[in-house]
């Protein structure tokens, strides 16, 4: 297989496989997790939970008092790389082109230079977080193979995408194919690792928020 056949494969059969596994795995896992159900809370609520679950979904995105100081890299790095990924994926012109292609929806993107900057910042933040994972005792203690693996799987699409655009190291075609392949690996891995938090995060925050709201505590 030459580099061009490689590209043809990743944008055709490879993409089919990756998207298929991603969708299958995601729907499966969501069922598997949320069909376990939970008991009804019989205690009289202090107040109705209402939209508290939703409030927590948003509130938890802010650092609690004092925590920023205790783990600055987690928060600042976390913000930069999560927002960075969102900016690259949703505001990068080639990605908007891709989304338009798949869904017909389109919106204006950011100039390539800004996306390039966001990419570099995202990679820097991810590297800082990797160093933090090695340095911070609690993080290092919790880390398993999965943590290093998922870091790499998330980092590679950013790196290869950036290298493809900058025409670094390998011919564009190969880099582009590697970029698409790395995204496909990410898609395949996502439902079965901690990366699945992109979905369950909302459920978790919701559960925590609504259960505690019944007690009258905004969490």
């Amino acid at each position: 297989m030459n580099e061009l056949q490689f590209l043809t494969w990743v944008r055709g059969p490879g993409l089919d496989i990756a998207v298929g596994i991603f969708l299958l795995g995601t729907v499966w896992r969501l069922f598997e997790i949320y069909t376990l159900g939970r008991g009804k809370d019989l205690a009289a609520p202090r107040r109705a939970a209402g939209a508290s679950g939703l409030h927590t979904v948003f509130r938890r995105s802010l650092p609690p008092p004092g925590m920023l100081k205790r783990s600055p890299v987690s928060y600042i790095g976390g913000y930069i790389f999560h927002i960075g990924l969102a900016v690259i994926v949703f505001l990068g012109a080639p990605h908007i082109m891709l989304i338009a292609n798949l869904t017909g929806l389109s919106w204006p993107g950011l100039p390539a230079q800004i996306i390039g900057l966001a990419t570099v910042m995202t990679m820097a933040a991810m590297l800082a977080m990797l160093v933090d994972r090695i340095n911070k005792p609690a993080k290092r203690f919790l880390s398993t193979f999965e943590d290093w693996f998922t870091w790499a799987v998330t980092f590679l699409p950013v790196l290869t995408g950036w290298m493809a655009v900058q025409h670094l190291l390998l011919p564009y075609t190969t880099m582009l194919a590697l970029h698409i392949l790395s995204v496909e690996i990410l898609l395949i891995v996502l439902p079965f690792t901690k990366l699945f938090h992109v979905f369950t995060l909302f459920g978790s925050r919701w559960y925590n928020g609504s259960a505690n709201a019944r007690k009258g505590v905004p969490v």
């Binding site: 376990l36 939970r38 911070k136 398993t144 901690k194 938090h197 995060l201 978790s204």
Partner: peptide
């Protein structure tokens, strides 16, 4: 005793270690 919230919680954990700081 394992229920949907527990499943959701375990699946969400990213090993960030912030709970330790709390």
């Amino acid at each position: 005793v394992i229920d949907a919230p527990i499943a959701s919680y375990f699946e969400s954990c990213v090993h960030c270690g912030l709970c330790a700081e709390a």
